[in-house]
Simulated assay, not measured.
Amino acid sequence: MNCDNPEDLVVETLWAIIIEKETGLYQIDNIPFYIPLISCGDIVFAEYDEAEERLVYRQTVKESGNSTIQIELLHDNDRELEIREIFREMGCESEGTAGGYFVLEVPFDMDYTAIKQKLEALRNDQIIDYAESCLSNLHKY
């Protein structure tokens, strides 16, 4: 990832499906925890980096249309599974760390309005805070 400020560098290992190894195309196969601007299902260009000794993301080639939302519980980490279940029932998968932080995937074909309303209600009740780390054009108002 190209960063002007080294302190902004984010290192995260992602799962990927090989689309075309010869040209470095891969499809992201999990919800990114920390890396902004990419979502599960995106097709990306990655190449082997000698210094890192692994494939390194270089750019997004095709967006999936999915959105990634980062969610942090503000006070009661024991409610993480309960909060994740609310969004699962609304049609959104999530991955968590069991430490009061998880990421939510909003599928490309889902209306984001109800999800956004629930996020805002939980934020207004001071239960969570959240960031739209990769908001698809399909989900922007």
Rank of each mutant, 00 (worst) to 15 (best):
T60L: 03
G24I: 00
D29E: 09
L81T: 04
Q27T: 11
Y34V: 08
F102E: 08
D49F: 12
L55S: 00
E132W: 02
V56Q: 10
G41I: 04
M90C: 10
A98E: 15
D42M: 07
L135V: 00
D49G: 08
D125K: 13
F108H: 15
C92G: 06
P32Q: 04
D29M: 09
G96L: 07
A16V: 08
S39R: 10
E80V: 00
K118F: 13
G41R: 05
R88T: 13
Y26A: 06
C3Q: 07
A98V: 15
L119R: 02
L122T: 05
F45G: 03
K116M: 15
G65D: 09
P36T: 12
L9N: 11
N66D: 11
Y101A: 12
T113N: 15
I31Y: 08
D78W: 11
K21G: 00
N124K: 15
M90E: 15
P107A: 08
D111W: 05
I38F: 03
V56Y: 02
E82V: 14
S133A: 09
L14A: 11
R84H: 00
T13D: 15
L55W: 00
Y141Q: 14
D78P: 02
A121R: 14
P32N: 05
E50N: 08
E50L: 04
E85L: 14
T113L: 13
A114G: 12
Y48L: 06
T68W: 02
Y130H: 03
D42C: 05
E82N: 13
Y130S: 02
N2D: 13
A131H: 09
R84E: 09
E22S: 05
I115P: 04
T97K: 13
F87Y: 10
L81M: 03
Y48Q: 03
F108R: 12
E22T: 00
P6K: 05
C92H: 09
N5S: 06
P107G: 07
V10W: 06
C92M: 09
Q126D: 12
G96C: 13
C92W: 06
T60R: 06
A51K: 15
R84Y: 01
Y26N: 08
P6Y: 10
A131P: 01
I43T: 12
E52A: 14
L37R: 15
L122E: 02
L135P: 01
L119Y: 04
Y57N: 01
A114T: 15
Q117T: 13
Y141A: 13
R88W: 14
D49C: 14
R88V: 11
